[in-house]
């Protein structure tokens, strides 16, 4: 996983709540067996509308998505994260994320930042008024900065460390091999097995 320390870029305001993962990447895109090539599927239905914010030339090349509350609800599809990254987003800001989406993001190095709705509103207003305004998402200092805005955000220390270092979860867990073996040795015999009977 690519490490995330700090990122500065232009931002897109997405004024919708409950953006579910079916909107982020529709199901017919999930037939692909790779982790890339999802950029054209991102918000596919909405992008058919020329007025959709991502279609506006002034937001071309933006790398931070400032979204409404409850972003990433619904399906567990990690393809939603890959689609955002394939398109070029490095960070998503919202007042609330669905759990699975957030977990998936952090595993792929897409930083999801939770800020109070009032701050999200201010950021959206800022980039609506000035699409060229830059937003900095600083994981080292756990802070989002833009013109006239400076907001601290929370992220648990362990998740932050993994992101800052770009660490692979599986390698970290495999260091605990002896604990896993010890646990397995004590599992009751009545626990189910999938071996065909």
């Amino acid at each position: 996983m690519e490490a995330f320390t700090t990122h500065t870029g232009r931002a897109v305001p997405l004024r919708r709540s409950n953006v579910d993962t079916d909107q982020i990447i529709p199901a017919h895109w999930l037939k692909k067996v790779t982790r890339d090539g999802f950029e054209d599927g991102l918000f596919e239905a909405w992008r058919k509308d020329p007025e959709f914010v991502l279609n506006k030339p002034q937001y071309k090349g933006a790398t931070v998505l400032v979204a409404g509350p409850d972003f990433g609800t619904g399906s567990s599809r990690e393809h939603a994260v890959w689609a955002l990254q394939n398109y070029g987003f490095k960070a998503v800001i919202s007042s609330r994320f669905a759990d699975i989406f957030r977990g998936n993001s952090l595993k792929n190095g897409l930083l999801t930042v939770v800020l109070p709705q009032e701050t999200v509103d201010r950021l959206q207003k800022l980039v609506e008024a000035d699409p060229a305004a830059e937003v900095t998402v600083d994981l080292v200092d756990r802070q989002v900065r833009a013109e006239g805005i400076s907001a601290d955000f929370e992220l648990d220390e362990n998740a932050r460390w993994r992101l800052l270092e770009g660490l692979d979860d599986i390698s970290l867990t495999l260091r605990e091999e002896s604990s896993i073996v010890a646990y397995e040795a004590n599992r009751p015999s009545f626990k189910p097995r999938t071996i065909e009977v």
Partner: peptide, 8 residues
């Protein structure tokens, strides 16, 4: 879970 966790 997501696909990264499936792999995990």
């Amino acid at each position: 879970i997501g696909t990264s966790q499936v792999e995990h």
